[in-house]
């Protein structure tokens, strides 16, 4: 027996469930801040805020999305303004770059029957992560929430508090921009580098 005050069983269970999402929150924080110490600080700040307001969480709603919303708010409030990254610009260009169509139009001669497989095989994990990190932050957020964390458009809209139409537009442009950033990694054939 202990005389220390005990948290209600429900709160303990909820906080344990919150901690089970730490890998997802950390990888998001790492891609947003660009370095491990800042990512750890951001995750810690996220859990501080979450534990403090756990009583406001409505059971039965999406805990994971709620945690990501806290993380995004903390990022915008605490980290983005101190970020050592250069300011991201140019959200306006209509980037319709397509790696696949670039490949078809080039003299890229794949050695296997399925060229699309060969394209992916040439992309290292490192090059994909670097390309993600180069995306403007507004694009990076939606691409990570959709393609890494598997959130729906509606959930992303709620996490970032933006309209669904904006989610769709940023996702489309972010994915296109990502392919443009990855194109140089495939440049064994110079013609694949058109538009770089």
């Amino acid at each position: 027996m202990t005389n220390e005050p005990q948290a209600p069983a429900g709160a303990v269970q909820l906080s344990e469930e919150a901690i089970s999402h730490i890998d997802a929150l950390y990888r998001m924080a790492l891609r947003l801040t660009g370095n491990a110490p800042d990512a750890e600080d951001l995750v810690q700040e996220t859990y501080l805020r979450a534990f403090r307001s756990l009583h406001q969480f409505r059971p039965g709603t999406n805990l994971r999305a709620w945690l990501f919303r806290i993380l995004m708010n903390a990022f915008i409030n605490e980290y983005r303004r101190q970020s050592r990254r250069p300011a991201n610009t140019s959200l306006e260009d209509l980037d319709e770059f397509s790696l696949y169509h670039q490949m078809l139009e080039s003299d890229f001669q794949p050695s296997v029957a399925q060229p699309e497989q060969e394209v992916l095989a040439r992309l290292s994990e490192e090059s994909v992560l670097e390309a993600l990190d180069e995306l403007p932050v507004e694009f990076r957020q939606v691409v990570l929430l959709a393609d890494v964390e598997g959130f729906s458009y509606k959930e992303i809209a709620e996490v970032l508090r933006i309209p669904i139409g904006t989610v769709m537009s940023r996702l489309h442009r972010g994915r296109r921009r990502l392919q443009r950033l990855l194109a140089p990694c495939l440049c064994q054939s110079p013609s694949l580098c058109h538009g770089q």
Binding site: D23, Y26, V128, L129, L132, V143, L178
Partner: peptide, 10 residues
């Protein structure tokens, strides 16, 4: 892209 980014662990 998802697989690459999900390999990161806390």
């Amino acid at each position: 892209v998802g697989e690459c980014a999900r390999r990161v662990r806390a």
